[in-house]
Design a protein around this nucleic acid. Structure first.
Length: 433
RNA sequence: GGAGGGAUGUCAGAGCGGCCGAAUGAUCCGGUCUUGAAAACCGGUGUGGGGCAACCCACCGUGGGUUCAAAUCCCACUCCCUCCGCCA
């Protein structure tokens, strides 16, 4: 949520920033008009309220001094004023609620450095990486044996059983088996181990209350994207960002504790309602996938370094696995609602011949923290909203696909990335049995 | 699932219809004392909103209700604790 005080103070700055995301200035003007209306109505109601309180006090005093008649008179007067106050408050509350609703609808302001553009065509590729690049090697060329889609490889080697997954939970719920399952486990475990030096490992609940989903901004807007367990008012989390962001909801954190860095491996659930029929093969787009998330609460001053750290760790994992990737600087129009700045990491996967998004790293400024009301107390100052930063490191289903396709050998086996071989008892290849 | 107890400020913990935004203690900040520190003592220390300001309003788990007046009474819900049952 954008700061209403900032909106009042610097309406033109906010308009200019949001115009980059295609938000019209009339939308902001509407809020400002309603806000002025709200304040007027509120003042009227509060003046009445103040009077009622004063009269009530007089009733108490009259009672105490035994003047029952005066007490009754004043009570009657107060009762009338009270009715009036109730009506005035209802009007003020209704307008205030409208302001809040409109404000919640506004996306975050893009950071100044965010490139212009209204959709993904405006994203800027910052760099690419591939194995051997530093030694001057060119971008890899791929052999025919690498041009096989992962679903075929998975079926050949008995690593991936999409049919059985569909039998159990419907299509787009993958079932990994044998070494395929072990690879999923190895990826998550390897990443958690890598992050353990600075990030506290968290194993949060897989489900979240409506209240929790709302405070991160995933509800009510993206309701259609979420799996719901209605009877218990629970939602399956679409990312560990949801529980992690809410862990300190409503709290005031000691400044000395910041930054608070956490990592979590969870299943992530997405209905992909808006993407029906797109990328439905294999693991490109699935309803459930494992992901390791990195998350930080921090001060505004720490935000840049936290962001850089998450990015470096996500890239580091891709380099450990030897997967070519590119870094995209998302343009203003392609930013997620809550984000002020986002870098996406895309891995090149030769079997499907596509760049696959495997990480999204975002700096939210205080946008999320305002909703979740997470603050810290700066030295000698009053409570201030924290900044939040998070990013995937990484989303495993697509990494799984990229590894299997990239590392496929001419004999049909798949080379296990060396850092993961320890999880396979030292074996170097996945082979059919 | 059954029975009971509870939810109050950064924390602990009083209050159970009328200057209660809230005792007391801890924390933290400032001061006195001290060569310095500790201790002791004195003073200050919630959040949010409105108003140029004086000041006003809201907030005692959440949402309703009663009343001239609610942290305090009533109803519903949520969460926590204890005991019993059931169960990984």
């Amino acid at each position: 949520m954008i700061d209403l005080a900032l909106l009042r103070r610097e309406p033109d700055d906010v308009k200019a920033a949001l115009a980059r995301r295609g938000i019209s200035s009339s939308q902001i003007d509407e809020i400002l008009v309603l806000d002025a209306e709200h304040r007027t109505a509120m003042q009227a109601a509060e003046a009445l309220r103040s009077r009622v309180k004063d009269l009530s006090r007089q009733v108490g005093e009259a009672r105490k001094s035994g003047d029952t008649r005066r007490a009754d008179e004043v009570a009657a007067e107060s009762r009338e004023l009270g009715d009036e106050e109730r009506r005035a408050s209802e009007i003020a509350d209704a307008v205030g609620e409208r302001v809040r609703t409109l404000l919640l609808d506004l996306p975050n302001m893009p950071a100044a450095e965010v490139p212009d553009g209204l959709d993904e065509t405006g994203n800027v590729e910052l760099r690419q990486w591939w194995p051997g690049m530093d030694e001057g090697a060119p971008f890899p060329t791929y052999e025919n044996h690498q041009r096989v889609p992962h679903w075929d490889i998975g079926a050949q080697l008995g690593l991936l059983d999409l049919e059985t997954g569909a039998k159990l939970a419907g299509s787009m719920f993958p079932l990994f088996r044998g070494d395929g399952s072990r690879l999923v486990r190895a990826l998550g475990a390897y990443a958690l181990n890598q992050h353990a030096d600075e990030y506290e490992e968290i194993r949060p609940p897989t489900f979240a209350l409506t209240e929790t989903m709302t405070s991160t901004g995933h509800l009510p807007k993206n309701q259609i994207e979420m799996y719901a367990i209605e009877r218990d008012d629970l939602w399956a989390i679409p990312t560990a960002e949801v529980p992690l962001t809410s862990m300190r909801r409503g709290e005031i954190i000691d400044e000395a504790d910041l930054p608070i860095k956490m990592t979590a491996l969870t299943a992530c659930f997405r209905r992909e309602a808006g993407a029906a029929g797109r990328d439905t093969r294999g693991l490109l787009r699935v309803h459930e996938f494992d992901k390791v998330e990195l998350f930080a609460y921090c001060t505004p001053e720490q935000a840049q370094s936290c962001f850089d750290d998450v990015l470096a760790r996500a890239e580091g994992l891709l380099q450990d696995f030897g997967l070519p990737y590119r870094v995209l600087d998302l343009c203003a129009g392609d930013l997620g609602t809550s984000s002020a700045r986002t870098f996406d990491l895309e891995v090149y996967s030769p079997g499907v011949d596509r760049w696959l998004e495997v990480s999204s790293i975002s700096w939210f400024r205080d946008f999320q923290a305002r909703r979740a009301n997470v603050r810290y107390r700066p030295a000698g100052g009053s409570p201030t909203l924290v900044h939040t930063v998070n990013g995937s490191a990484l989303a495993w289903s697509r990494i799984w696909a990229a590894i299997v396709e990239t590392n496929r050998q001419s004999d049909g086996s798949v080379l296990i990335p060396p850092p993961l071989q320890a999880f396979f008892g030292g074996r170097t290849h996945l082979r059919s049995r």
